[in-house]
């Protein structure tokens, strides 16, 4: 009987666990924002995507982002075409995702700005790299607003830039992220 007891406990836990997962509070949005920016003496590049899917799970402090790279809108049409055709190859690799966690406490019941650090894996162009960035989470009027900014190197994601245009593209892109999720119970 003594040997069976732990097994029963485990079994009970196994039964409870999924329910536990599904009851987790999840905050989400489908209109998150991700933009990337490059500034050089020769050319300014700006690309913005307003159709970013994001989920935050405050209970576990996990978060995930997913976007279609074709959703990036450039100021110049031709640049957008080259970005998709020649750089990120969006026909082959249509999605970019981020999956990670944040550290720091955010009290969803109290309005305020909370400083956190986001850590996780960013996948782009079929390459996954760890990313860490300081971020802010703001609780305001029933919404959780998350904002972050970090740098990313195109070469890290196996995106090759021909030498003839290398000077027109910043070595490090500035990436800005903003999500606004209504706080649901």
């Amino acid at each position: 009987m003594k040997r069976i007891l732990p097994a029963i406990v485990c079994f009970a836990l196994a039964l409870v666990r999924p329910a536990d997962v599904f009851s987790q509070q999840r905050l989400s949005t489908r209109t998150g924002f991700v933009g990337f920016y490059s500034k050089t003496a020769l050319e300014d590049i700006k690309a913005e995507n307003n159709q970013v899917f994001a989920i935050v799970e405050p209970g576990t402090k996990k978060m995930a982002f997913s976007l279609l790279v074709k959703g990036f809108i450039f100021a110049k049409e031709l640049m957008q075409e080259h970005f998709n055709e020649n750089y990120v190859e969006s026909d082959k690799y249509p999605k970019s995702t981020f999956s990670g966690i944040y550290t720091g406490d955010v009290d969803l019941t109290k309005d305020g700005v909370y400083k956190v650090t986001v850590k996780g894996d960013l996948t782009l162009h079929n390459v996954t790299k760890p990313v860490e960035a300081p971020a802010t989470m703001e609780v305001k009027g029933g919404h959780l607003i998350g904002m972050a900014e970090f740098k990313a190197k195109p070469e890290d994601y196996n995106i090759t830039i021909p030498s003839i245009v290398r000077d027109k593209i910043d070595k490090q892109m500035t990436v800005k992220v903003r999500i606004d999720c209504p706080i649901t119970k």
Partner: peptide, 24 residues
């Protein structure tokens, strides 16, 4: 049973991204 719990937990970790991809 132990492995059930562990795999259950791993699945939960991926769920977040999977849930996103499904809705996408």
């Amino acid at each position: 049973i132990l492995s059930f719990i562990v795999t259950g937990r791993l699945a939960a970790q991926d769920n977040l991204l999977n849930a996103l991809n499904d809705s996408m």
